[in-house]
Every structure is written in structure tokens, then in C-alpha cells.
Amino acid sequence: MTKPTATVSPDSPPKAVRRRRRLTFDKASFMAVFVLLPLAVFTLFELVPLVQALYYALTDWAGYSPDMNFVGLTNFAAMFSDPLFMKSLRNSVILAAVVPTITLVCSFVIAAVVTTGGPSTGRIQGLKGSGFYRVVSFFPYCVPAIVIGIIWSQIYDPQRGLLNGLLSALGFDFQGFPWLGKVDTAMPASIMVIIWGSIGFYTVLFVAAIKGIPAELYEAARMDGAGRFRSAISVTLPNMLSSLQTGYIYLGLMAIDAFIYMVALNPLGGPDYSTWTMTQNLYNTAFFKGKFGYSTAQGVALAIVTLAYAGIIALIFRLARGRDDGTDRA
């Protein structure tokens, strides 16, 4: 180990030096532990299953026997004429578009208020008691998704739920109104639950991002006469685009999945399958319809949708950042 491999005599040809370097135990063991091992693990547990899944997607495998026939792209063609799949695709796209947008706007507002919404004189700080608001907003994130789903399915209960009780107490006639049982309200009601469960985490993420913005920027803006709102839009927002992008992608992936929430709220897909997601359809196709091949093909489609979503978001943010892309990447 202590062999001074770096000392190169000026006479020795450089080729020999390189060869000797390649052969050292140091270098070999480093390669083995930090490159080859992870690569092997990655290949074994990521690439192999991926390729296997791609293969299954091209078969009619039923799941309980080793027999399967190669059917080419039949499964993929079948998806487009499968009304249930198309409905789930539509629902997942709606979720991916709506959930991150509303969640992140809410999180941004809360984060801005608790970090920079304080008095307009003196140090840049949040509202009085902002620590309390931060904890409160983070709280739902500490509750497991399945529990959130169960709690809200009770809140939405038509006869005894908290929501209808509250609305009735306020004088609206909502007694017996099935929020999760009407085509028009089932999806918005479910989206509301997912947002409720996610705001806290992104608030904390944004608070951290905003704390990283130099205070001078706010002070300068203040001197130029910017109010709190203007500061938030013109100083805070442009300086935390990376966090916003990260949030958009993570939340979008979560929304496309949405499996746990939907299973808790509407396990059978909601009225007229209005909350049926791609993940539910995939699971159902495999385990209740016994079509693992077709299900795997849907999984591939899901992966494509997810990748496309991430690509679109990255593109939008690239455009939003303008020419000087890369400089503010944290």
C-alpha cells in the first residue's frame, strides 16, 4: 500500500508507468469495490429483470406455469383497444398534470410565507410562529399513505362523514352525497387527498431551498421597493427552480403511481372507473385476470409514460431557465 507509485522517473517511458499503475492492488481493489460490484448488483437486480420484463411483455404468459408463447407486439396493440386501460391512462395523465401543480403552488406559498413573509424591516424572516406552521404542514407526511386513504374515506362517508356533517352544519344540503361515488367528484376528491398528504414534504424541501438563497438578494429587492409578493415571485422563485423541478418530477411519478391512495379510497376503480389508475389496472390484469404477459406490457407502457413525463418536465424547466442553463443547478 505504501509503495510510492506516483513517483515517475523522467527516463522511464510513460507507457510503462501507465501499465504499472493499472496493475496496482490499490487501483484494482478500488475498481472491484466501487465499480465492478455496483455494476454487478445493478446488472443482476436492475438490468436483468428489466430485460426479462421486456421479454414477458412480448409473451402470453399466464403467471402460474412456465409455459409461454411469444406473441410479438400483440399485447401492446391490445392496450389501445382496451377501454379499461385507456381510461386508466387518461386518469394517470390527469393525476400527473394536476397533483404536482397544485401541491407545489401550495407548498411554495407556505414555504415563502414561513421564510420570507415576516416583517418588512430588519432581518429577512418568516411570519411569527412560522416554526409551528412548518411542523403542522409537515405532519400529514408522517402519516402513511394507506392510513391517509382510510382516514379520508371515512371523512368522505356520505352518511356519517365529517365533510358532509360540516357542510350540512353550514346549511348546505349534502347529507348522503357520495363524494367518492359520483363520476364528477370521485377524481377531484381523490386528488385532494393526495395533495393533502404531500404538501408538507415539499414545503420543507422548499424552505431548505429558500434558506439557501443569499439574504442580500432580498435586501436589495427590498431597497428597490419590492413588497413580499414581488420578492417571492422575482427573487425566491427564480432561485429555487432546481428544487421546483425535482419536486415536479418526484410528485409526478408519485401521482402516476397513486396506487396506495386509490386502493384505500376506491379499491374497485371508483364510479365508472373514474379513478382507476394504470398501476391498479396492471395489478388487476396480472393477479385477478391471470394475464401476466399483458400486465407486464402495461408495465412497460407505464415506464414509457413516466419517462415521457420526466422528459417533458425537464424540457419545460430548461425553457423556463433560458440560456444560462446549468449555472444555478445545485
Binding site: 374515506s153 371515512q154 368522505y156 362517508d157 356520505p158 352518511q159 356519517r160 347529507q175 348522503g176 352525497f177 357520495p178 363524494w179 367518492l180 361515488g181 359520483k182 370521485a186 364510479p271
Partner: peptide, 22 residues
């Protein structure tokens, strides 16, 4: 029918029968 069944969890609905006797 008790209104709202399509948005009611089944044991809640069964309780409307066995407990509330609705």
C-alpha cells in the same frame, strides 16, 4: 336505497343495517 352507497365503505353500509337500522 340509503343514498350514497357508491361512496360508502361496505362495513359502514352494513352498520347502517345492523347498528343504525336505517
Amino acid at each position: 336505497m340509503v343514498p350514497g352507497g357508491s361512496g360508502t365503505q361496505f362495513t359502514q353500509a352494513q352498520a347502517q343495517f345492523s347498528q343504525e337500522q336505517k
